Computed example of a mutant assay.
Amino acid sequence: MRVRGKTAQLRLLLNLWHRNGPAAVAELIEAKLNPVGFSAAVITPTARSRVRKVLAVRDEATRRARLDELEAEIAAAESPEGQIALLRTEGLDFGKVYGETRHWHWDAILAEHRRSPLPGPALVDIGDARGCPPELAEAGRTQLRPWQHEAEAELAAGRPAAEVLATPRDGPYNGWLQRATASGVVTWEQVLRHAVPAELPLKLIGANHSAPEARAALAALVGAACGGDAEAIVLALRMAGDFPGPVAELLTVAAATVSG
């Protein structure tokens, strides 16, 4: 079993020190383990360096004081307050953080999130962490990612959804629209009335993973624009591939063409 992360590895070494003494710790951090069964660095250089500094102290009282300092540091990092501070730290690779060995204090973290939402980057991958509550996992799933897509950056900055949707984008929506609608920042009615070109949202709605709300919004719009006119609906589908405007306009043009 692999113990990942500086905090978890230092806790492992501290426990070994308390149970078997400093000699056992020194033996483990200097061991040349078989690469077939272990990675090249079972104990990370950071954890190894911290413990070596304590081991290098010869005066017993000073060494005890250094060990107590390290113990207090690790206990603080493991505490609910320490974990919450970690999740509010800017610039961390949270995907890596959630992959580390850690006993998360989920009740305290969820209460803190309800008090003041955790930062977006901390939420995105939080569902990957062991034992993550469904409420936090859902918050991560619907979190806008302004660092990944310009449209999400515009929405996060407060630009009206209609303007963001009406701005032509290169290629498919690549996930940002699903997150925007799931978070409630954008509605599917707005997508159908403003997103261009019409083919992109129609392809998204036609995919198997599309939200039922999207299909319901499309059905309502088709009913309002075309009624039961199957010819108008077929024409709209034929026009969709080359139509530069939004779906609402496409349906209006198709209905007008057939009735005219």
Rank of each mutant, 00 (worst) to 15 (best):
V222P: 06
E213T: 05
W176L: 08
G245T: 02
F243R: 00
A211R: 14
I233C: 11
H194P: 08
A232V: 04
L204I: 06
A232Q: 06
R215H: 13
T187S: 15
I233M: 13
L235G: 02
L202C: 08
L202M: 13
H194C: 11
A240I: 01
L218I: 01
P244S: 03
V234P: 07
F243N: 00
L204H: 09
L192W: 02
R193Q: 14
D170T: 12
L218R: 00
A195G: 06
R215Q: 13
L218A: 05
A217I: 01
A214H: 02
G227Q: 10
L177D: 03
D242N: 15
G175T: 03
A236K: 04
R169T: 08
A214N: 06
G245D: 14
A236C: 10
E189G: 12
R215I: 00
A240Y: 03
G245V: 00
L202S: 04
T187H: 10
F243W: 11
V234Y: 13
A230L: 13
A207G: 14
G245K: 08
A220E: 15
G175M: 08
R238F: 04
N208T: 13
L221R: 11
H194E: 11
G227F: 04
H209A: 14
Q178G: 03
K203D: 10
G223S: 11
L218V: 00
A216S: 14
A207H: 15
K203F: 05
L218H: 02
G228Y: 05
A214F: 02
A211G: 10
E213A: 13
A182D: 11
W176Q: 07
P246G: 01
L202I: 07
V191R: 05
L218Q: 01
A180F: 04
V222M: 14
S183L: 08
A220Y: 13
V185M: 14
L235R: 11
K203I: 01
I233V: 15
S183Y: 06
H194V: 04
P246L: 00
P201D: 01
R179F: 04
A216T: 12
P212R: 12
S210G: 15
A207M: 15
A180L: 06
A182L: 13
H209Q: 15
A180T: 05
P212V: 03
Y173N: 13
G228F: 03
N174A: 15
G228E: 11
A180E: 05
I205S: 10
Y173M: 14
R179K: 12
L192G: 00
I233G: 05
E199A: 13
A232E: 02
C226Q: 08
A240Q: 10
L177A: 05
A236N: 06
L235Q: 09
R179T: 00
V222S: 08
R169K: 12
E199G: 06
C226A: 15
R215N: 09
G241P: 05
E213S: 12
G245C: 09
S183T: 03
Y173C: 10
I233H: 12
A217H: 04
Q178V: 00
A224N: 13
L221E: 12
A182W: 03
A180G: 07
L200P: 01
A232K: 05
G227I: 02
G241I: 02
A198Q: 03
R193N: 12
